[in-house]
Amino acid sequence: MTNGTEDLDHLIALMAKLPGLGPRSARRAVLHLIKKRSLVLLPLADAMHRVGATVRECLNCGNICTSDICDICQSEKRANGQIAVVEDVADLWAMERAKVFQGRYHVLGGTLSALDAIGPEELRIPQLMDRVKTEEVTEVIIALGATIDGQTTAHYIADQLPTVQVTSLAQGVPVGGELDYLDDGTITAALNARKAL
């Protein structure tokens, strides 16, 4: 771009870092935002500022919320003894969208990976073990993707919890699949047909 557009160039460069957007898509998005300045750009900037100032991780489960403990963890209705272990907040949101799971969650923040030097301490596995000890947990549902790292993580967690029923999602989750990309019906079928690890 020409001189005097440093702010626009910076905005386009930032937008290009978003998943699914490259430089050309980012330029189109920025042009759209500018054309719809009062309807989209200014409200979006305001919302992003508020979210940036208030959003944090739930101290209990790792979900994203605006308080120290998220609504799911605070809900007594969700304290049914089940914890679904997910890799990422997007997976938690996918399961919530399906509206079939009524327990609580635990977000690991990734999966074990010897190649990337990601061990249990780099994830939220120790916090999960603490929750199982302190909350009245009767079942831990491993809701990780059907990848090698996901399965390795699932078996590691199951080995650490010999006194609790550990199950995993069953049919409908393809090998190499990630929860965030699955439709609600597939997630429902997988949750309902979970099996012991």
Results as ranks from 00 to 15, higher is better:
Pro43Trp: 01
Val40Cys: 06
Arg27Ser: 07
His49Cys: 13
Arg27Leu: 13
Ala26Pro: 07
Ile34Gln: 01
Asn60Cys: 14
Lys36Asn: 15
Val55His: 00
Ala29Ser: 08
Leu31Asn: 12
His32Gln: 09
Leu44Cys: 04
Asp46Trp: 08
Asn60Trp: 06
Asp46Arg: 13
Arg50Trp: 02
Leu31Tyr: 09
Leu42Arg: 11
Cys61Gln: 12
Gly52Gln: 00
Glu57Trp: 05
Thr54Glu: 12
Ala26Cys: 04
Met48Glu: 05
Ala53Phe: 05
Leu31Thr: 11
Leu44Val: 05
Arg27Asn: 05
Arg28Leu: 14
Lys35Pro: 08
Ser38Arg: 06
Leu59Val: 11
Ala45Pro: 11
Val30Tyr: 01
Leu59Cys: 10
Val51Leu: 03
Val30Phe: 03
Arg37Gly: 05
Gly52Pro: 02
Val55Ala: 06
Glu57Leu: 15
Pro43Ala: 02
Leu33Asn: 12
Leu59Met: 10
His49Ile: 06
Lys36Met: 13
Leu59Trp: 06
Leu44Glu: 03
Lys35Val: 07
Leu44Ala: 10
Asn60Pro: 09
Gly52Leu: 02
Ile34Arg: 00
Arg27Ala: 04
Leu44Gln: 02
Met48Asn: 09
Ala29Leu: 14
Ser38Gly: 06
Ala29Thr: 06
Val55Met: 04
Leu59Ala: 14
Ala29Pro: 09
Ala45Asn: 03
Val51Asp: 00
Val30Gln: 03
Ala53Lys: 11
Leu42Trp: 03
Ser25Lys: 03
Lys35Gln: 12
Arg27Lys: 14
Ala45Thr: 09
Lys36Arg: 15
Glu57Thr: 10
Lys36Ser: 15
Ser25Ala: 14
Leu42Val: 14
Ala47Pro: 09
Lys35His: 11
Thr54Arg: 15
Leu33Pro: 15
Pro43Val: 06
Lys36Pro: 11
Leu41Pro: 11
Arg28Tyr: 06
Lys36Thr: 11
Pro43Lys: 05
Thr54Phe: 07
His49Tyr: 08
Arg56Leu: 06
Arg37Val: 03
Gly52Ala: 01
Ile34His: 03
Ala26Thr: 02
Val30Trp: 02
Ala26Gln: 02
Glu57Lys: 12
Ser25Phe: 05
Arg27Met: 11
Asn60Asp: 10
Leu42Gly: 04
Cys58Trp: 04
Ala47Glu: 13
Asn60His: 11
Ser38Glu: 09
Leu41Cys: 09
Ser25Gly: 15
Arg37Met: 07
Glu57Val: 12
Arg56Asn: 03
Arg56Lys: 11
Leu44Thr: 08
Arg37Ser: 03
